[in-house]
Each structure stands twice: as C-alpha cells, then as structure tokens.
Amino acid sequence: MSESIFLDIKLPNETGYLRLLGKIGEYLAQSIESYPGDREELAYHINLVLTEAMANVIRHTEDTKSGEGLHVTLRVENRKLTIKVYDQGRGFELCDTPEPPPSCLAEGGRGIFIIKTLMDRVSYHKYDGGHVLEMEKILF
C-alpha cells in the first residue's frame, strides 16, 4: 500500500456533528483503494467507531467547561488506519469490556465494546492535560 492520508479535524463538541464526523470517516475508508476487504463494510465500521468515540467524549465532557471542541486525527499509513480522539474532560476507564451476554438489557455501555470489537488495538491515556483515545485498524 502506497497511500498516505492524514486528516486533522476540529469540530464543536455537540451531537449534531456526529453525522459529519462519521461521514468523513466513511468517505476516507471508501477512498482506500488498495484495501483488500469489503470497503463498504469498512466504511460503515469507521463511521460507527467515530460516532461512538465522539459521543463518548461528549458524555464525559458535558460537566466541564471546555470550549476546546473536539479534536480528531485520522491517518492511513503503513497498512493501517489510526484514529486519535482527544478530549479535555474528566476521562473514563477503558476497562476490560466483556462480550455482552445474550440477555443483557442494560441501556448503555455498548459503545466501548463496539469500538474494541471493530478495531484491532484500542488505548486511552493522558495527553497534554487531557486524554487521547487511540484506535488502530490493520488494513491488510
């Protein structure tokens, strides 16, 4: 793969922009011509992962007075897609998220499970006074 793409995105920290961020991820995935798998499926998954990550940041920063907005970077390089989502909120625990049992009727808590299931590597750590959620997808 010779493609190298880098996107640096800043958005207001509002759910009204979930669709825009998801669509950007979807278009990026569709444009990776050398991806050997189903590009439409990859596009859907990246849309979903970005939506879950952004919604998570909004949830964890709603009680802070951060006017920073949301900062996301997407990088396609060296046969992998790396997404970084930065936040200035109180942070959250990226604990071991087990597969939900078949009868699980919890209304929340599936977002991180979905991200961890669809991406190959997920980490969350402190960065520059805030945090960064880093997600990696091996493209082939």
Binding site: T51, E52, A106, E107, R110
Partner: peptide
C-alpha cells in the same frame, strides 16, 4: 441505515 449504541439503548429502554 445506521444505528449506534445509543440508538440500541433507546430500543432496549422501550423493550423493557
């Protein structure tokens, strides 16, 4: 065409 964990949560809430 698209549902996320919050959408699923709303449907689970309705089901319950």
């Amino acid at each position: 065409r698209f549902v996320d964990s919050s959408g699923l949560g709303a449907l689970v809430s309705g089901f319950k």
